[in-house]
Design a binder for these strands. Structure first.
Lengths: 183, 183
DNA sequence: TGGCTATGTCAACAGCTGTTGGCCTACACT
DNA sequence: AGTGTAGGCCAACAGCTGTTGACATAGCCA
C-alpha cells in the first residue's frame, strides 16, 4: 500500500517545518528533510518545486490575535502578553520565521507584513490615534519578538526559567503602556 | 611596498566583520571576505586558521555598559536605553552576534555569557536583591535585543523611523521597571 | 490480461564551499 | 651579490548542495 500524494506532501512539510525551525534556512538541506520524511530528495522537488517554495509552504503563519473587544481596557496588555506566551509554543511557525528572517531578506519582508498587517490595525483600533498606531504596534513587536528571541532561540537561562504567568505579569504592563499609554 | 602582516590581518578582520554582520555566518564565505580584503583566500586561512576562528576574532564584543554610580536612581532606565540606542550603531559587533547567534549555538552561548556576565552584575548592584537580579537582567535583555532585532535586522518601518530620543523615551520606563520596579 | 498513471527511486550533473600544499617574489640582511 | 624569509598567489582536493532526467513499480481502469 503506497502513501497517497497528500500524505507524502504533508509528511515532507512537517519535516521541513521542524528542520527550518531548528536549523534556519541555510543549514536546512533538502536531503535532510527528505530523510526525515523517509523519502527520496527528488520527491521534495517534485512536490514543492524548489527549496524556496518548500520554505514558503512551511512558513505559512498567523499571529492568531485574540478578539480584544470584550477585554477590559486595563487588561489588554496582560491579555496580549498571555496570548503570545502561549502562541510561541503552539507550533513551530514562529521559530521558523525568527530563525530565518534574520538572515533572509524575503522572510524579513514577510515578518514586516505580518506585524504591520495584524498588529497595526489592532493598535489603531485600541489607541484611536492613527498617527501613532504604527509606532505603538512596532514597540509591541520589539518586546514580543525580543522575548521570543531570548527565551526560545538564545535560551538565556533566567528568561527560560520564567513561567508563563511571570511573563504575563512582567510584559503585561509594558505592552499596556506601548499600546495605550504615554512614554 | 608590500603590506605588513598586521595590516593585512586587520583588513581581513574588517572585511569579515562587515560580511558576518550583513550576511550571517553561513552565507559568509571565506572567498568573499578575501575578495573584499583584496587578498587570496589562502591568506585568510594562514592568518586565522579556519572559518570558526576567523569568526571568533571578528565577534569580539563588549556591551560597554556605562558607569551608573552617579546616575539618579530614577533616571537609570532612560540612561541605559540611551546608551544602547547609541551602542547598537557604534560598530557592527552586535549585528554580527545577532545575525549569527540565531543559527549558531556556539555564538548563542557567547551571547548568554555576555548578558549574564555584564548585565547580571549590574542588575544585582542596582536592585540589591540577588534572588531576582538574574531575571531582571534577562527582562532587560529581551527588550534591548528585541529593539535591535526589529530596528536593524528586520527593519520594521515604524521602529526604524523612531529617533534615538523617542526610543529612550519609550524604552526608558520599561527598563526602569524591569531593573528596579515590580510587575 | 494489458496498459496507463501516480508514486517513488537512482545516479549523476554542475556549482560552490572550506581547506591544503606547492610555488613565486620582493625585501632585509650579510 | 647572494640568500633567507615573510608575504602572497595559484591550482587543486574532497565534500556537500540544489536540481534534473531516466528508470522502476504498484495499483487502477478498460
Amino acid at each position: 500500500m503506497r502513501r497517497s500524494s497528500e500524505d507524502t506532501k504533508a509528511s515532507i512539510l512537517a519535516a521541513a517545518r521542524e528542520r527550518f525551525a531548528a536549523d534556519g534556512y541555510d543549514r536546512t538541506t533538502i536531503r535532510a528533510v527528505a530523510a526525515d520524511a523517509a523519502i527520496d530528495p527528488a520527491m521534495v522537488m517534485r512536490y514543492f518545486g524548489n527549496k524556496e517554495k518548500l520554505f514558503a509552504a512551511a512558513a505559512d503563519f498567523d499571529l492568531q490575535l485574540p478578539d480584544l473587544a470584550d477585554v477590559p481596557r486595563d487588561r489588554i496588555g496582560a491579555t496580549l502578553a498571555a496570548h503570545f506566551a502561549e502562541r510561541w509554543e503552539a507550533d513551530e511557525a514562529l521559530m521558523v520565521l525568527l530563525r530565518t528572517g534574520v538572515t533572509n531578506e524575503e522572510v524579513a519582508g514577510r515578518m514586516r507584513a505580518i506585524f504591520a498587517g495584524q498588529l497595526g490595525p489592532l493598535a489603531a483600533t485600541l489607541s484611536g490615534d492613527p498617527a501613532t498606531a504604527a509606532r505603538r504596534a512596532g514597540l509591541v513587536a520589539t518586546q514580543i519578538l525580543g522575548m521570543a528571541l531570548c527565551r526560545y532561540v538564545l535560551r538565556l537561562p533566567p528568561v527560560v526559567e520564567m513561567t508563563r504567568e511571570e511573563i504575563t505579569a512582567w510584559l503585561g504592563p509594558t505592552l499596556q503602556r506601548y499600546l495605550l499609554g504615554t512614554p
